[in-house]
């Protein structure tokens, strides 16, 4: 029981770390496309870590299923809106930042 709980705590910490780095990326990255990368990927993985961490700590199947459902909803939604934002930016001819 306590082992599961501690594993959950580690996952929660990882999740918070992912959220932090997502926000750092959102502030640091040079253009809209790379910021989208930071936002979509880091936040979804962060939420996934938090969901699985809480699922381990709750020890209840009903709560676990509901948590995973919320995560799936956020996953679908954010990947769709990420694609929409990138596509509209392309149509508006916003050029991606390049190294040179």
């Amino acid at each position: 029981m306590t082992i599961l709980y501690n594993c959950g705590t580690v996952l929660l910490m990882a999740g918070v770390l992912f959220f932090l780095s997502g926000t750092v990326g959102l502030l640091r990255f040079p253009d809209i496309y790379s910021r989208l990368h930071a936002l979509t990927k880091a936040d979804n993985v962060g939420l996934g870590c938090i969901v699985f961490g809480l699922a381990l700590q709750s020890g209840s199947i009903a709560v676990t299923i509901k948590l995973i459902l919320i995560w799936l909803l956020v996953l679908i939604a954010s990947s769709a809106s990420c694609h929409l934002i990138a596509r509209s930016a392309m149509q508006k001819n916003i050029q991606p930042w390049t190294r040179s």
Binding site: L17, F18, S21, G22, V24, G25, R28, F29, P30, D31, Y33, S34, H37, A38, K41, A42, N44, V45, G46, G48, P96, W97, T98, R99
Partner: peptide, 27 residues
């Protein structure tokens, strides 16, 4: 999918938190 998206998160984290600019974006 789980493995790849986790790797994706790690990748973004590495690039966001490193002191040097690690980006080389393109289409």
């Amino acid at each position: 999918f789980l493995r790849q998206s986790f790797l994706g998160g790690i990748d973004v984290m590495r690039r966001a938190l490193s002191f040097r600019q690690l980006l080389n974006p393109g289409l």
